[in-house]
Amino acid sequence: MVEALKNINLEINIGSYCSIVGKSGSGKSSLLKIIGLLDFDYEGTYVLFDNQLRSNKDTVVSKHRRKIGFVFQDFQLINRYTVQKNLETASVIKLGYVDKERISEVLEEVEMSSKAESYPDELSGGQKQRISIARAMLAKPDLLIADEPTGAIDEENTENILELIDKLHKNTNTTIIIVTHDMDVAQRADRIIELRDGVISNDRVLL
C-alpha cells in the first residue's frame, strides 16, 4: 500500500486559478486524479461543487466529469480520429449531440480551424495540445484541470498554450488547476500550492 498523499487539507475557491508544484514523485498527479474524479482510491472526503462523490455512483460521477475539462501532458487525443471527429466524439459524450457550431468556435479560439481534418499524428506537440484545450473548453467547463500541459512541448508553444489557459480564465472565470514543475508556469496562477512527499509544504496566494 503506497501512500502518495498524506494529511491533505485543501480548499479551492470557485473561479480561482491554482497551480500545484513539487518535485517528481511528490504526489501532484495523485492529487489531480482525485480532484478530477479519475481516482477514488483514497481515505477521507472530497467535495466538488457541494457534492461528495464516490466511485459507485457512476452516472453521477460521469455527469460531473462532463463539466470538467482535462488537459493532459500526453494530449490524449484519439489518434485514429481526425481533429474534427475527436471533438465531435467529445461533444456527443458531453452534450449528447454533435455541436458543429461550438466545435468550429473552439477550433477558432485555439487557432486550429485549418487543421480540422488532420489526424493527431500529423500535428506538432503544441498543435496537439491546442486541440486538447479546445476539447476541454468545448462544453464550457466549470473546472479546468491540466497536468503538466506544457511538459511535452517547446518554450515558444508553452507561452502560446499558457495564454490560451489565461484567456479562458479571464473570459469565463473558469476555475483552473494546473500541475507543473516549472515555477515560471506556476507564477501565472493566483495561488501556488507546493507538495513535498505527499504533504502540502507551502500554500501561498499571489497578489
Binding site: 478530477g36 479519475l38 460521469s62 455527469k63 463539466k67 482535462f70 490524449q76 466524439t89 467529445a90 459524450i93
Partner: peptide, 16 residues
C-alpha cells in the same frame, strides 16, 4: 485502454 479512459474522462458512463 487509453481511448476508453479518454471517453470515460470526458464523462461517458460505464453503461455506455
Amino acid at each position: 485502454a487509453n481511448e476508453i479512459a479518454i471517453y470515460r474522462s470526458l464523462g461517458m458512463t460505464k453503461g455506455m
